[in-house]
Each structure stands twice: as C-alpha cells, then as structure tokens.
Simulated assay, not measured.
Amino acid sequence: MNSEPKVAVIGSGSWATALAKILLNNEDSINWYFRSADNIEQFKRFRHNPNYLRGVEFDINRIQFYDDLNELVEASDILILTIPSAFLHEAFSKLTVPINQKFVVSAIKGIVPEYNQIVGHYLHESHQLPFERIGVITGPCHAEEVALERLSYLTIACPNIKRARDFGTKLDCEYIRTHVSDDIFGTEYAAVLKNIVAIASGIVHGLRYGDNFQAVLIANAIQEIKRFVDKVHPITRDIKSSAYLGDLLVTSYSQFSRNRTFGAMIGKGYTTRTAQIEMHMVAEGYYATKSIHEINETYKVKMPICDAVYNILYGNVPPAVEIRQLTNKLR
C-alpha cells in the first residue's frame, strides 16, 4: 500500500513558519529543517518558532525536526525551499543525498547569486532535477497575514499541472486558496523583479514622494516586468493575474514587505549595510538587483526602474538624484 508523500519545509524564517502552519491543516505531520539545533530545542520547549511569528503555536508532536539536511531529504518526498536565495547554494553544497526523484517547490522568490539563476534553473542544472519535478509558490501572500489567518491566494506553478494541483490540495484551507500555472519561469522571474520594484517603492516613500507618484511607479513597473519575462520566456500569460500583478502590489505597498522597508530606509539616508543590520531579515531584492542587472546585459530589456535601484544600491548614486532622473523616464 502506498503511503502519502512526506512533506518537508527547509528553512526556519517567517515564510517557512507560515507554510508549516498551512500544511498542518491538511497533513498529519511534516518534516522541518532548522540550521540551528538550539532553535529546535527552543521550539520544542515553547511550542513556537523562537525567532519568527511567535504567536503561532504548534503541536510539536506532529513535527519531526532535523538539523541535518541530508537526513531530512532522505526522509522526505516533497521539499519546500524557504532558505533565502543568497544562502541556498551554500546549504545545498553540503547535500550528498540526490534530489532528482523528489518534488522540489521553491517558495524563495529570489535569485541564486553565485550563478545568477532563478531557483528552478539552479536546481535543474546543479542538481539534475527535471523541470517537471520543480514547483514554484507565488502570489500575494505575506507570512504575517497567514499567521492571522487572513484570506490569501497562492499560485502553484509547475510544468506538470497534475503535480501542481496535487500539491495545491496540501495548502488549500479556510484561509488559503490555490490556483495552478505552468509558467515556472515567468512566475519566478516576476517574483524576483517585484522585490526590486518594492525597494524602489520604499525609496520613493523615504524621499517623501506621494501616492500619486507611487501609482505611476507601479503602473510602469508591471510593464517593465512584462517586457522582461516575455523576453526571457515568451509564452502566453496574463500579467494582470494575482501571480504577477497581485504579488507586485502587495510587496510594493504592504507594511509587512521587508523589501519596501529596506528601500524606505535607503530613501531616508541609511547605507545598505546599516539597513540590512537593523532589519534583522533578508531583503531578497538587494541581491536580486545586481543579478538582474547582470542577466539583462544579455537580454537588453528596457528596465528604468530596476536600473535606478541598481544605481542607488551598487553605483552609490544618491537616491534623490537617481529618482529625480527616473521621474523623467516614466509615463
């Protein structure tokens, strides 16, 4: 008799914690990887993640914790990745257990900086994982609102639509609704780009631009995202759907957006280093900005917003100067 596939969460941040909460609505138990054995012990003692979403209490009898990634992979069939993209290659470089027969779902929304690759491409090329066994979780869904059980919509992208639907049933619950897509490249690149735009949104907020300009910025940004994903992976897609536009809107406007928060600090005069230290969280868009700039040297897509963020973060151009120049390029 075939048993149900075992689901594992890899990572211990806020989104990992939110996904674990969602999964336990439908799964009898899950596997969960923490890099720190001390954090696991604290979790078991207090029944919540010691560092993120502390208000979410878990039945620890339904969680098998691991601090050894190889042991977790060996014991699991479905792997959900939530490690920040900047640290994914380092973590997976220690992997000796093959993953090419697993179903691996990226919930990262970032680029692996060592390779300038979205997570799907990295898994395919560096770990010989077939694209049909790669999934992407995308859509407007902040961990903090999931913790509060506020209605949220997720898109599960995978070339194998049946796998996407089957995985979606593991997340569907009273406050989570899922849809499926076969656009793993477009959804993942869009999820990366919206983080860069959110930094821009934060910067202009920090510079005291108003809602009117914010609206113009985001209207131009969705066109910029469309130009890029259509160039990189030209298929028919509805850029206005929640997987693309919805995710862009929530990340650019929400109080929970770490990328917007990071950008606002830059706009107010913080250095990138100081902003990163004070946030105590990773803003994926910081790393993505450099990677997308380098990737676009090949594609040469017109991307004034992403270019402006790059010039501010990596070119040391004062935010006020760069954004003033950007205002002349938007419509």
Score class of each variant (00 low, 15 high):
7 V>T: 15
7 V>A: 04
7 V>L: 09
8 A>T: 04
8 A>L: 01
8 A>N: 07
8 A>V: 06
9 V>D: 03
9 V>L: 08
10 I>R: 02
10 I>T: 03
11 G>H: 10
11 G>T: 05
12 S>I: 02
12 S>V: 09
13 G>P: 02
13 G>Y: 09
13 G>M: 14
13 G>V: 12
13 G>H: 08
14 S>F: 11
14 S>Y: 08
14 S>M: 00
15 W>E: 02
15 W>Q: 13
15 W>N: 05
16 A>L: 13
17 T>W: 00
18 A>F: 11
19 L>P: 00
19 L>F: 15
19 L>I: 15
19 L>Y: 02
21 K>L: 07
21 K>D: 06
21 K>H: 08
22 I>Y: 06
22 I>K: 04
22 I>A: 01
23 L>K: 03
23 L>S: 08
24 L>R: 06
24 L>F: 03
24 L>N: 01
24 L>W: 14
24 L>M: 10
24 L>A: 04
25 N>H: 09
25 N>V: 01
25 N>G: 10
27 E>Q: 06
27 E>C: 05
27 E>M: 08
27 E>W: 00
28 D>Y: 15
28 D>K: 14
28 D>C: 15
28 D>F: 15
29 S>M: 11
29 S>H: 09
30 I>S: 01
30 I>L: 05
30 I>N: 04
31 N>Q: 12
31 N>F: 14
31 N>L: 03
32 W>H: 08
34 F>W: 09
35 R>E: 07
35 R>A: 04
35 R>F: 02
35 R>I: 11
36 S>Q: 05
36 S>A: 10
36 S>E: 13
37 A>C: 10
37 A>M: 07
37 A>L: 10
37 A>F: 09
38 D>R: 12
38 D>L: 09
39 N>G: 10
39 N>D: 09
39 N>M: 07
39 N>F: 13
40 I>A: 01
40 I>Q: 04
41 E>H: 13
43 F>K: 12
43 F>A: 02
